[in-house]
């Protein structure tokens, strides 16, 4: 009987600790993608400023209300502008930011292809 109670208590403790650590990881993820507006190059996760503390409080509230990460970002962008998030949203203003790496990748691949083909061609000849 004692062993059963011990196993039951251990199970409950394990479940609750996993749940709370999941929540903490989620919170940290959101904090890391938010910029501290009053700090020099720090995220909300890194900062202990008054502003960061308030943002942490609000993010925690919203996660408890069941809001998704995207909903929280949208809410904060509506209040502080896009500068508050590190990952910018896709828009016409930052189209190059999102597409340029792919263009460079394709362009680079094409150049490598040409070089390899030329080298092979030279070797055959």
């Amino acid at each position: 009987m004692k062993i059963k109670i011990f196993l039951f208590v251990t199970y409950i403790l394990f479940i609750t600790s996993t749940y709370s650590s999941d929540d903490k990881i989620k919170l940290l993820e959101v904090y890391k993608n938010l910029r501290c507006l009053v700090c020099q190059g720090q995220s909300i996760a890194d900062s202990n400023s008054d502003f960061a503390a308030t943002i942490k409080l609000v993010v925690q509230d919203q996660l408890n209300e069941g809001k998704t990460e995207d909903e929280i970002y949208k809410f904060l962008i509506s209040k502080y502008g896009e500068w508050i998030v590190y990952q910018p949203t896709f828009s016409i203003n930052n189209i190059f930011l999102w597409t340029l790496p792919y263009v460079v990748l394709i362009f680079g691949g094409f150049i490598i292809f040409l070089v390899v083909r030329k080298t092979r061609h030279n070797r055959v000849n």
Binding site: L37, V38, D50, F51, A53, T54, I55, L57, V58, D61, L76, K79, Y80
Partner: peptide, 10 residues
């Protein structure tokens, strides 16, 4: 400070 966030205060 919760209200301040609603008004975009930093």
């Amino acid at each position: 400070g919760r209200i301040s966030i609603l008004f975009g205060i930093y």
